[in-house]
């Protein structure tokens, strides 16, 4: 768990981060959304002390990071940035192995870990491992950046616009990969982005940041359903909010007993996907199955429409 207490950073008397207090629960992904200059990157960098706070403190699992030596603190926290910052004079494999090397792991263990990570990110170790950063595609470089951050099994992963340099198709894939890896490893992630859609898609919790403060901090549904300020409402967008809300929830949350005709929908699919399927095929109820194709029940159009209303149904 990451606890932030009255965290403040001022540059030349001007606060960039202004007394932020928040908790990011263990194993969750918190997305910090804001425009440039909102202080989100500064906030993130105070967690691994790339920036020293002017006031306030950061606790990781109850330990004040100011008391941990900078170097060992950072070796224990993964960090991914927009340009990835891969070391251009090292191979992909050596880039991944940098923190284990700094930690003095034996060579064989570093090699095994590098291979494991490349496999996990669906890259061929024999092909990609010996390549230099300039020989990698954007998507490959991004995955190497993530692998490097995860190499020493950090409890905490900080990501600053990690998908910003990718084109839309590859970005989708990278976002899916992140979700998968996170489930697999249980890492606590703090991700900074200017893209509300990305935050809604990835975040367990979302913090909307403006002028150094959190305007709203809560689960994605709250952000969409009840924006706390006009700024948050503006970021979420006035139109199509109902559909966004539906996109956040899986079909499994509205399961009913019953029978329905036609192709089934996966319980993990979003309500908006289910609704789209209903409109497309002219049905008002769909059979729901689990990952293995086992029938679980049905989902109905009325239930979905109710879930998309501004106020939650009583």
């Amino acid at each position: 768990m990451i606890e932030i207490e009255a965290l403040t950073k001022t540059y030349g008397g001007r606060p960039v981060v202004d007394g932020v207090t928040a908790r990011f629960a263990r194993g969750t992904l918190t997305a910090i959304v804001g425009s440039s200059g909102s202080g989100k990157t500064t906030l993130l960098r105070m967690i691994n002390r790339l920036v020293e706070p002017s006031a306030g403190r950061v606790l990781i699992d109850g330990k004040d990071v100011a008391r941990i030596p900078e170097v060992s603190l950072r070796q224990g926290i993964g960090y991914v940035i927009q340009g990835y910052g891969l070391f251009p004079h090292w191979t992909a494999a050596r880039n991944i192995g940098v923190v284990p090397t700094l930690l003095g792991w034996p060579r064989s263990r570093i090699k095994a870990r590098t291979q494991e990570l490349l496999h996990m990110l669906q890259l061929d170790p024999a092909e990609i491992g010996p390549r230099y950063p300039h020989q990698l595609s954007g998507g490959q470089a991004q995955r190497i950046g993530v692998a490097r951050a995860l190499a020493a099994r950090p409890e905490v992963l900080l990501m600053d616009e990690p998908f910003g340099a990718l084109d839309p198709l590859i970005r989708r894939q990278a976002q899916r990969d992140l979700t998968r890896i996170r489930r697999q490893l249980g890492t606590t992630v703090v991700l900074v982005t200017h893209d509300m859609n990305e935050a809604l898609y990835l975040g367990d919790a979302i913090a909307v940041m403006r002028d150094g403060r959190f305007e709203q901090f809560g689960p994605p549904e709250d952000i969409v359903r009840a924006p706390a300020t006009p700024f948050v409402a503006d970021l979420v967008g006035e139109t199509g909010r109902a559909l966004r809300l539906l996109a956040l929830k899986p079909v499994g949350t509205l399961l009913r007993a019953g029978q329905a005709q036609g192709d089934p929908v996966d319980a993990a699919a979003s309500l908006s996907d289910a609704l789209a399927e209903m409109i497309w095929t002219g049905r008002d109820r769909l059979p729901v199955v689990d990952g293995r194709g086992q029938g679980l029940g049905i989902v109905t159009r009325d239930d979905i429409l109710a879930a998309g209303r501004q106020a939650p149904p009583a």
């Binding site: 940035i81 340009g83 990835y84 910052g85 891969l86 070391f87 251009p88 923190v99 700094l102």
Partner: peptide
Amino acid sequence: PGSVLLSARAVGMTPRQMLVQV
């Protein structure tokens, strides 16, 4: 590049390691 220096700090290199290795 600034991003490389930032990464070097972020992975926990000491100033000396940054100089010699990067």
